[in-house]
């Protein structure tokens, strides 16, 4: 497939072409960044929802029901589901699709599983590109599931417009830990597994944490606690899904009404720029050093005590990057 053909096909919502480009961005092929230049122009109009929270809290189950709810509105939905890659083997068992299988025959739903491939931040390095590709395919909504391993899953805050933090009753310590930063983490706090013991006291404790941190500005979004039960395959037997959906829509409406959405877009671009810069600078520098024997010389001079890593990096960067400021 030629690059131009790939772009044309993706813009016409061709799944196979999109799937192939997703693999290229994951494998960091040189060609992918060329193609992404054309893709990028056709993005920025979708609703982006992030879903984060510990493994097993019910992120995939909730997403399954949210897909169904958006499909009722006839919205096209993309889902990016990230699972951790093993730091030892590099492999990953990507099992989120088991919960989404109701939609594997639905033309209006595109799901992509990703291994984190050593990237920190709760997503994969290529997740933001995969989201862009889903937008270019014309998905109205893109839902991003983070891998849910730890508490420092910050990238999702930069990519998603509406961020859901999924908690469950009986994670008392974790709730203590996030209380302080609760306003930054989530737009909506989903208390899933509300069927379990301790749900009510958990809701109260979250509500009071929110009010304790409340700033008195107007035009501030106050995070809401939404209890849900997402375990049934039948949405009708679940609880709180419609409420969650309504809250997502209200948050979106808030972002647009207050023009807060502009800040969200800007943050996302800043994040993407940062990632691309980091990769490209590293690539350029390592490519420049390759085969020159310089790297070994530097290391030896540092061992001998004639140099130090900071000065080496200064020196190398000043030869590869011009030091003048951009106009």
């Amino acid at each position: 497939m030629k690059p131009q053909e790939m772009v044309d096909r993706i813009l016409k919502a061709d799944r196979r072409a999109a799937a192939r480009l997703m693999t290229m961005v994951e494998d960091q092929s040189e060609l992918a960044s060329e193609i992404m230049k054309d893709i990028f122009a056709c993005t920025g109009r979708s609703m982006l929802i992030g879903v984060t929270g510990a493994g097993g809290s019910g992120k995939s189950s909730l997403i399954e029901h949210l897909i169904g709810r958006f499909r009722k509105d006839d919205k096209k939905v993309g889902v990016v589901a990230v699972d951790p890659s093993s730091p030892f083997s590099g492999g990953a068992l990507l099992g989120d699709r088991i919960r989404f299988q109701k939609y594997s025959l639905d033309d209006g739903v595109f799901i992509r599983s990703m291994g984190s491939r050593g990237y920190m931040g709760g997503l994969a390095r290529a997740s933001s590109d995969v989201v862009r590709i889903m937008e270019a395919m014309g998905n109205d909504v893109v839902i991003i599931e983070t891998l849910g391993a730890g508490q420092d899953e910050v990238d999702i805050i930069h990519i998603a417009q509406t961020c859901l933090l999924v908690l469950t009753p009986g994670m008392g310590d974790d709730i203590q830990a996030i209380k302080a930063g609760i306003m930054e983490i989530a737009d909506l706090i989903v208390l899933n597994k509300a069927d379990l013991e301790g749900a009510n006291s958990c809701i109260q404790s979250l509500e009071s944490a929110i009010h304790y941190n409340l700033k008195k500005d107007k035009d501030v979004w106050v995070p809401r606690v939404v209890p849900t039960i997402a375990s049934s395959m039948q949405t009708a037997e679940c609880e709180g899904i419609e409420d969650l959906y309504q809250n997502i829509m209200e948050h979106q409406a808030f972002l647009h009404k207050t023009r807060r959405i502009d800040t969200v877009h800007a943050k996302r671009i800043e994040q993407e720029l940062g990632l691309i810069f980091k990769d490209e600078v590293e690539k350029t520098v390592f490519a420049g050093l390759k085969g020159t024997g310089k790297k070994r010389e530097y290391i030896e001079s540092i061992i001998k005590g004639n140099n130090n890593p900071y000065s080496v990096v200064d020196e190398v960067l000043s030869t590869f990057l011009r030091t003048e400021k951009l106009e």
Binding site: S86, L93, L94
Partner: peptide, 20 residues
């Protein structure tokens, strides 16, 4: 076993039709 060997395995489980 495949994921332990460094591959990414998309696991679909039971009851899959050829279309799925």
């Amino acid at each position: 076993a495949l994921s332990d060997a460094g591959m990414e395995v998309i696991y679909l489980g039971l009851h899959q039709t050829p279309e799925m």
